[in-house]
Design a protein around this nucleic acid. Structure first.
Lengths: 350, 350
DNA sequence: TCGCAGAACTATACCGGTTAAGCCTAGCGT
DNA sequence: ACGCTAGGCTTAACCGGTATAGTTCTGCGA
């Protein structure tokens, strides 16, 4: 009934705790026969070492932390994180580690969480997402000497290693694809410009469009459906609306699609839509969204491996993921002229 | 630089570790002056007790666990869990506890995780979701005497307390709503019948429809977009298609909407759609989905409170959540006749 | 036959807290 | 003046592991 300890095993095997410890950890100091006897008893009573006791002596928590500071309602349909966690988790369980996951109100709360976790030795390191320009977390983590791995561009990460993807190449592929379809005026609905990857993507988008000789505009949003919808209304309602829009995540793309449909603008007949981040969401709506597909779970596993290395005292290098591939679906077509409801219906009946 | 321990505080205050412990925990045994001096030092050096050491003496992990055994890709867009976690988390952080979250391949792996966590004393209890008929987890948790709270109907939970909602009342409200709109043939796309709440909802749906004098049919699916789409194709392509469909979650509802649109069947003109579980997803697609809204985060917090009580030795009673309210949006309308693309277009031009 | 190396364990300290038990000392009652 | 009590603190044990320093015994070489 009581959960067994090494003392129980020691008693049953007629040896001391130390001998049991040696046997269980493959340490020399016990005979083969005794070792086998001890292991048999451990198996029989289903012994598992008390994680707290082990953490206490080893000075490690055998756990990593992840804090996200976006509102839960937004997070819910943002597929990115579940896939990331899934990838992290795959790597951690195979090493008997756990993931402590939580959400915070804002960055201050997140930092407070880091400090507390570290002081309490609850985690051996953390994963950092949504890196911002002049992110306060970086300084705090370095000051605490707390192992951490960043998911995002290596810019502004200080000495922390990053798992990142070549956003520039991704932007190029989308712009080329749209250009080939005949689009001349394209737009992008990005995340907050205070996020590093947003800044980088905006820059790349402008350059790629310029090189291809296209008109380009970028609008800021905050990754939520509301902002995505609002930005889309602004773009499509303008005097010279774009014929194609690239969204920084799938949630905004889906919301943008809804807005276009509500405005009576067909997709892809009136406007083409591309989503950054592919997910089940892109497939389940109609028309299905063409999207930049990225193996997020793989990135999660990679990051977990790197954090393990850091926690063991190493200094892993940045890791560049495989480039994203454009998953072609139904939401892109040849450039047309955006039209509002009335004119579109007449075109249909024509 | 080194993270401070009570020994550091004791030395600086010129007392022993025990005195420091008394002071920090509000225990009697130190004078007010000494207590204040110790607290001041602790504040100054940012002391936080080592969680492993505390866990070791207290015999508690100060953490709860949550395992989900659905594939990550599905989980990603399933808003339910993030909201649940958010609610749990709100209650836990305010009590200095953490949530260990992970995903498992299947129920066996989930049970294995429970056993290991418990033997290792990594958690003080777990939250159980997706309860199935004859769920093996219940027996295991009871055998281990592991505190656990179930999110779902109290049926089949053994001695474990549950946080649940009156699904029957919810079904009734939807059926009444559809009946009032003139629908006479309605369908429901449910989750796996091996889930308790699915079985309960199916039963309630049949009864409610019968009482209202409606034709009703239930189809099984597995909560994924694929199954939702497939089930919808089957229903709408049948000889006598329903004029309204209730889906057991938002993901399937959204997928069903996509299928209807692809088949040229208007929503709500050709078929009305209702989603169980409301989320940002329901709002961002077009038409926005009418949905049963439930405060999932509140349920999460409640469950966390109950699990804390259990871990402290209590036996909390089942908790019934507030009934869900039907959030009316655009996806429901008066009963029409489902038509395929050709006939519909002619109807439009008529 | 003695000495010594090495194998196989034991004894013990330690990680960083909590806590029961013990020890002074001041203060109070009688 | 003496005993008793309570306050204020220390000592020391304990939680369940790990690690280091012995200790005992065996076997082998000179």
């Amino acid at each position: 009934m009581r959960r067994p300890t090494i003392a129980d095993i020691a008693q049953r095997a007629g040896v001391t705790k130390a001998a049991v410890s040696f046997a269980l950890n493959g340490q020399p100091g016990v005979s083969a026969a005794t070792r086998e006897r001890i292991l048999a008893i451990a198996r029989e009573i289903g012994f598992q070492p008390n994680s707290a006791a082990r953490a206490l002596t080893a000075g490690k928590a055998e756990a990593f932390g992840l804090v996200i500071d976006r509102p839960a309602r937004t997070l819910g349909i943002e597929p990115f994180f579940m896939q990331l966690i899934s990838g992290i988790q795959a790597e951690l369980t195979s090493h008997q580690m756990t993931l402590v996951f939580t959400m915070a109100e804002d960055q201050e709360a997140e930092i407070e969480m880091y400090r507390r976790w570290w002081a309490q030795r609850r985690v051996d390191g953390v994963f950092v997402v949504d890196l911002q320009v002049d992110d306060r977390r970086i300084a705090v983590l370095q000051e605490l000497h707390m192992p951490a791995v960043v998911f995002g561009t290596p810019r502004g990460t200080g000495s922390l290693p990053a798992v990142w993807q070549d956003d520039r190449a991704a932007v190029d592929s989308v712009v080329r694809y749209l250009s080939d379809l005949g689009h001349r005026r394209i737009a992008r609905v990005g995340g907050f410009p205070r996020y590093w990857h947003t800044a980088l993507r905006s820059e790349a988008f402008g350059q790629a469009a310029a090189e291809a000789g296209l008109d380009a505009m970028s609008v800021e949003a905050d990754y939520t459906a509301e902002h995505g919808a609002q930005a889309t209304r602004g773009l499509l309602g303008s005097a010279e609306p774009p014929t194609a829009i690239l969204y920084d995540n799938d949630v905004m793309a889906a919301a943008g699609l809804g807005v276009a449909q509500r405005m009576g603008i067909g997709v892809p007949s009136g406007v083409s839509i591309v989503s950054w981040d592919d997910s089940a969401l892109c497939e389940l709506i109609h028309p299905a969204l063409t999207a930049l597909r990225r193996d997020i779970a793989a990135a999660g596993s990679q990051g977990a491996r790197m954090l393990r290395e850091m926690a063991a005292g190493g200094q892993p290098a940045n890791f560049q993921e495989a480039p994203p591939v454009l998953q072609i679906r139904e939401s892109c077509g040849p450039a047309g002229v955006p039209q509002i409801a009335g004119s579109r219906r007449s075109r249909l009946s024509a």
